[in-house]
Design a protein around this nucleic acid. Structure first.
Lengths: 247, 247
DNA sequence: CGGACCATTGACCATAGTCAACCGCCGTGG
DNA sequence: CCACGGCGGTTGACTATGGTCAATGGTCCG
């Protein structure tokens, strides 16, 4: 893993200003944060269940996911993360990781030591609030996943997940002509949605058949967004993408 | 709903110091927070999906729960909360509630305006960190719920939930001789665990049959904790009950 | 006494899991 | 160069888990 130092890229600022209002002083404190760039191999763990986190990372490129490992060894993926996301902010104030975070496909991240972050929060509480909000949005996404995996079945569950990935990819400009990257295998989709590989395959086929969406070679192709959102009962409220003032 | 003013009770301090180290100044700022006591009728909503939250509440007595409402009108409960919990801290920096919060049985809460809280965080960042951590623990509980409802089936799912309630009740001294309150109906357990009323009833019977746990009249009775934890694959790590220093 | 709600049970059905085989693709090594 | 193995995707057959429907009984309350 090659490491090099760099100033925190605009990726972070772009993400935070998407939902929080920051003033000049906040921005300059953020710009002063240093971070190390790290490249992750496909499926490489960034941090593991049981580890004690000292730094957290922002995704520069690629995709990452959180997951639990069951006693049986089976994985349960919990959420997926895109460029600009902060997939382990959850570990900021926790002693030990209760879950792992890995790359999905090749990814590069920027890591910032916790100590530097908490210093920034003390200087400019608004920065802390913005990142706090970031973690609250994460939590909201978890809640939606509980509902999706518990109360929706089959096609709706798959459709809802596709909606989420597609919508969030759009927010960070990662959708090109109805296509966004989703470097998952069907097996992994099953481990995310709490269904078997075979079920994923069959529900996928019904989305294909009705020309709503397709998924192949690690790409998600949305042919009928309206219909997909309807099947998945998708309402983006839970992603909380509204700019408001943090006084 | 009778309202009266009071100083924030020790309930909050007890909760925060359970997992965060606070110094004298922090504590006195917390003691200066004012709050309104509010009594909630059984099943009364404290705040609803779509509302804009201006205050948040700490549970003084009783139980509360978060839930989503599906398009079909069906409820999906997301998490349950006990005395000392902060069931809507999730709304602290969010524009609109993406879920509702209601009382489970009779409950009383203490509400604190958001503005007063953010002021406290600016004065004493450590207080913010402690409450931030509180919300991160919530998120961890959500993650566990994803895994529970997606990757465990039947009895294990029910057993895991019982473990969580029993364990958390123990932390705040609400277990008496193997019994703790859980004022749910079997229908509600189903809406929490993503299974039908009938399944809940049947899985409950198998826990009864093997003398592991029982559930009746709104009470959870644990007769064999060891076995229950084994069936539910319960590992309390995700509750993050470790005191550590927040510098 | 009647109604509402909750728990329980049986019968039946639907969804989804398991198992197994097969295909195509790709990368490795003989 | 080609054979082979591994992996991901697809399919069929069978099974199991759990959902739906419906009826019953108990308890509490008006």
């Amino acid at each position: 893993m090659p490491l090099r130092h760099m100033a925190v890229s605009d990726t972070l600022l772009k993400k935070l200003t998407q939902h929080s209002r920051l003033v000049k002083d906040d921005i300059s404190v953020i710009r002063r944060l240093t971070c190390q760039l790290r490249e992750l191999e496909p499926e490489e763990d960034f941090i593991r269940q049981g580890d004690r986190p000292h730094a957290s990372c922002i995704i520069m490129e690629g995709m990452m996911a959180r997951y639990h490992v069951m006693q049986s060894g089976v994985r349960q993926y919990l959420s997926v993360h895109l460029a600009g996301d902060w997939p382990d902010a959850q570990g900021l104030f926790l002693e030990k990781m209760d879950h792992s975070v890995c790359a999905i496909g090749r990814a590069s991240v920027c890591t910032i030591p916790h100590a530097e972050l908490t210093d920034a929060f003390r200087q400019r509480p608004t920065i802390g609030f913005a990142i706090w909000r970031e973690t609250l949005i994460d939590a909201s996404i978890f809640r939606e996943a509980i509902t999706n995996n518990s109360a929706r079945r089959g096609v709706a569950r798959l459709a809802h997940f596709f909606c989420e990935v597609y919508y969030r990819s759009g927010l960070v400009d990662l959708v090109k002509e109805g296509v966004c990257a989703l470097p998952f295998s069907q097996t992994m989709l099953g481990e995310l949605l709490g269904m078997s590989l075979v079920s994923v395959n069959r529900h996928l086929q019904s989305l294909r058949k009705y020309r709503v969406a397709d998924f192949k070679n690690g790409d998600l192709i949305v042919t009928n967004w309206q219909k997909l959102a309807e099947i998945g009962e998708f309402d983006p409220l839970y992603l909380h993408q509204v700019v408001e003032t943090l006084t």
